[in-house]
Design a binder for these strands. Structure first.
Length: 547
DNA sequence: CTAGGGTTAG
């Protein structure tokens, strides 16, 4: 029996009595109408007491019509539905991110249905705790699992190690790991992951080297662990190592990690190599992998390829990540107009922007000097998308107004925003003060911040930059001296870029690397060239915008 | 019927 069910099969009154055939039929239903028809036949024939059939129907509706699934479950003629059906329902609630409902169902399992949870129940709910990073809940479940005798079952064991590790309680996770008699790849990987998330990559690496068997998930956990703490070279080294030694094909998730490392390093050649590798081995290009490719190309300075990956993406897969990555890439390459156009295209294609998208598109507006457009987009956040602007968005607004020379308006935003301005908002305002020669305003702001103990290194550096722009060297020295005396430090900026396959790293103020003279000369040349082009007339872009 | 890994931010 293969293929879609025929009308005859669906209507067949006697067929339902045989549970196995019912299961096969359920498996072949593709529409809600078909499934409901089978469901009513099962109800009439009494086969609905088969929990496997019920479970399959539940799972089908949980994915397509959740409220119908809930209804179906509520009206099931219990006690025919065994623990299995409850587990299925709990799992589908967890899948739908309705964790609270899943836990409440767990509670009524004993009270209403007089059913005891089993190893499956615990495994699903421990997973839910891990998603919520809720260690209290995990402890409660742990106790109950012990009480009911499910503690030492493999999935429960691994679920416990995983949840404690994710919640950062590595002592508990490791203790369970040590006591565990099963210790499979999953137990090891859960622990490695926990240490990575805490930033303890050395411990994670030791475990990784020590574990008896590694699969691609274990490799990925370690690769991503390195990326998370910024050890991108180590991440790529491990990624290459995996190809060379393990004989495993990396999964899309692992490739995302490696591409991430390339993005952070600016390692275009390595990124290209990975892209080619993906093509060659026909690794499936899923949504996330495509977004990671777009991001990698954009961050490595190759917007054309970023665009190419985007356009080749099936339309239905172009999600908010793909759009936002590209919008950000375009904005960062001076293609502000294209970034805004893409944002509009996103809207017209019905892809809903999120808070990150707004940061990217607003910054595109501010670099283009498109004040009105930026203000309109900012307004649409709340009005159209019901996204409450965060400090970061107010920061973008300050930048938008400040760059355009509307200092008073920018200052007003800083003063009236509903939360404490973050360093970006303050930095944007101070930067605007520098560009537009508003020395007094800048000075007063920093003084006010220092008074309220809200000053940090970056703010003082910006103030000294303001003085420097105005050639007030005495004040520059004073600010710097004040910073020294008060022990204020700014974290030095750093960046990296790949040239001919080798990655070079730079730290502000460090002149020890090779060809520093050449770089400084080139920069001076670029600066001179830009200045020779003359200033862009104020308001020029705004007119182009409305015209 | 089950578990561990992944994407966008000035």
């Amino acid at each position: 029996m293969h293929g879609r069910p025929t009308e005859e099969e669906l209507r067949g009154p006697t067929l339902m009595r045989a549970s196995r055939r019912a299961l096969s039929l359920i498996g072949r239903c593709t529409t809600a109408r078909q499934m409901k028809q089978v469901q009513s036949n099962l109800t009439v024939s009494g086969t609905l007491s088969d929990p496997y059939a019920v479970g399959k129907i539940l799972t089908f509706f949980a994915a397509s019509d959740p409220s119908y699934a809930d209804q179906f479950f509520d009206f099931l003629p219990f006690p025919c539905g065994a623990t299995f059906v409850w587990n299925t329902m709990i799992r589908s609630l967890v899948d739908r991110n309705e964790h609270a409902a899943a836990f409440s169902l767990y509670r009524s399992m004993a009270s209403e249905a007089r059913l005891l949870p089993n190893n499956y129940t615990f495994s699903f709910l421990l997973n839910a705790c891990a998603e919520l990073v809720d260690i209290c809940c995990a402890c409660t479940l742990h106790c109950q699992a012990i009480k009911l005798g499910w503690e030492s079952y493999d999935f429960v064991q691994n679920g416990l190690v995983h949840v404690y590790a994710i919640c950062g309680d590595l002592d508990s996770a490791h203790a369970l790991f040590n006591a565990s008699e099963i210790k499979d790849v999953i137990t090891w990987t859960a622990l490695i992951n926990g240490y990575s998330k805490l930033g303890q990559v050395d411990v994670a690496r030791e475990l990784f080297d020590e574990m008896p068997h590694r699969n691609s998930v274990s490799w990925n956990a370690m690769i991503n662990g390195y990326v998370q703490v910024g050890l991108c070279k180590e991440a790529l080294e491990l990624f290459n190592n995996m190809q060379a030694t393990s004989g495993l094909l990396p999964s899309p998730a692992g490739i995302v990690g490696a591409l991430n490392a390339c993005s952070l390093l600016g390692a275009l050649d390595q990124g290209r190599w990975i892209h080619a590798y993906v093509d060659k081995h026909q690794i499936s290009l899923d949504q996330m992998l495509r977004s990671a490719l777009i991001d990698m190309y954009a961050k490595c300075g190759c917007v054309e390829m970023a665009l190419d990956v985007f356009e080749r993406m099936p339309k239905a897969e172009r999600d908010v990540f793909a759009f936002t990555s590209l919008i950000s890439g375009l904005a960062n390459h001076g293609e502000g107009e294209a970034a805004i156009k893409l944002f509009e295209r996103m809207e017209s294609e019905g892809v809903v922007p999120n808070e990150v998208t707004f940061i990217c598109v607003l910054s595109a507006c501010s670099r283009m000097g498109l004040v009105d457009r930026g203000l309109r987009i900012f307004g649409s956040m709340r009005e159209v998308y019901k996204i409450e602007p965060q400090a970061q968005h107010y920061g973008c607004l300050v930048d938008l107004l400040g760059r355009a020379g509307m200092l008073r308006e920018a200052k007003k935003v800083v003063e009236e925003m509903p939360m404490e301005p973050d360093s970006y908002a303050l930095g944007a305002l101070l930067n605007a003060c520098r560009v537009h020669g508003e020395i007094e305003l800048g000075r007063k702001m920093v003084e006010g911040l220092a008074h309220r103990k809200l000053d940090h290194g970056g703010v003082h550096v910006l103030l000294s930059n303001i003085y420097a722009s105005a050639s007030q060297w005495g004040d520059v020295v004073q600010v710097r001296r004040g910073m020294e005396e008060n022990g204020v430090r700014k974290v030095p900026g750093c960046s990296s870029i790949e040239v001919n396959g080798a990655v070079f790293e730079f730290v502000v103020g460090d002149r020890s690397y090779m060809s520093v003279d050449e770089i400084v000369l080139t920069l001076a040349g670029m600066d001179k060239h830009l200045k020779s082009l003359g200033p862009v007339e104020e308001g020029e872009d705004e007119r182009a915008d409305s015209g």
